[in-house]
């Protein structure tokens, strides 16, 4: 997983409250075989509306998404996080997030930043014209206009995101222990190696 330290760029000023995971990625996109490629199905219903932020060239490829309260509610589908990653979103800023989505986002290296509604409103305004700067180490969101909003994050999640460590990455950090275990077993119980032709 890619580490997140700072994220700079334009932000989709979505602003909508209660964005559920069906809105992020509809059920018909769940039958595939990859996590990649789901970006083209992301926000499909919203994108059917003329003038939507996702099809506005000004925001194309934005690494940040700004939304309203309770982002990611509804279905537990991990595809929502996969879809956001596929469309290049690394940070979602909202007043609050559903627990399941926040966990799925974390597992997939997406930073969720919860800020008070007033801060989100201000960032929505800035996002319409200018880039936003997110600094995970400093736990801050800043703008070119001297705005500075601090956010809280679980220390464990912070260190994982900074190090680019997902759960697999964390276990891979225990490679020495796993290797030592394997070596000991191969010595004690050599018959455990299957005769795979």
């Amino acid at each position: 997983m890619e580490p997140i330290k700072t994220v700079d760029g334009r932000a989709y000023p979505l602003g909508v409250k209660n964005v559920d995971t069906d809105m992020v990625i509809a059920a018909k996109w769940l039958k595939g075989i990859t996590r990649a490629g789901l970006g083209k199905g992301a926000f499909e219903a919203l994108r059917a509306e003329p003038g939507n932020v996702f099809d506005d060239p000004a925001y194309a490829g934005s690494p940040i998404l700004i939304a309203g309260d309770n982002f990611g509610c509804g279905s537990s589908r991990e595809h929502a996080a996969w879809a956001l990653t596929d469309m290049g979103v690394k940070v979602v800023i909202a007043p609050s997030f559903s627990d399941i989505f926040a966990s799925n986002a974390f597992k997939n290296g997406i930073l969720t930043v919860a800020l008070p509604q007033e801060a989100v409103d201000r960032l929505m305004d800035v996002a319409k014209t200018d880039p936003i700067h997110v600094d995970l180490e400093a736990q801050s969101v800043t703008t070119p206009f001297q705005d500075r909003f601090s956010f809280e994050i679980d220390p464990f999640r912070k260190s994982c995101l900074l190090g680019g460590l997902d759960e697999i990455g964390l276990t891979l950090a225990r490679t020495d222990s796993i290797g030592a275990f394997e070596t000991a077993r191969a010595k004690d119980q050599p018959w455990l190696a299957p005769a795979l032709a």
């Binding site: 759960e167 697999i168 276990t171 891979l172 225990r174 490679t175 796993i178 394997e182």
Partner: peptide, 9 residues
């Protein structure tokens, strides 16, 4: 996780 680490927590 198993493919990558041959372990589970």
């Amino acid at each position: 996780h198993v493919l990558a680490t041959q372990t589970l927590l």
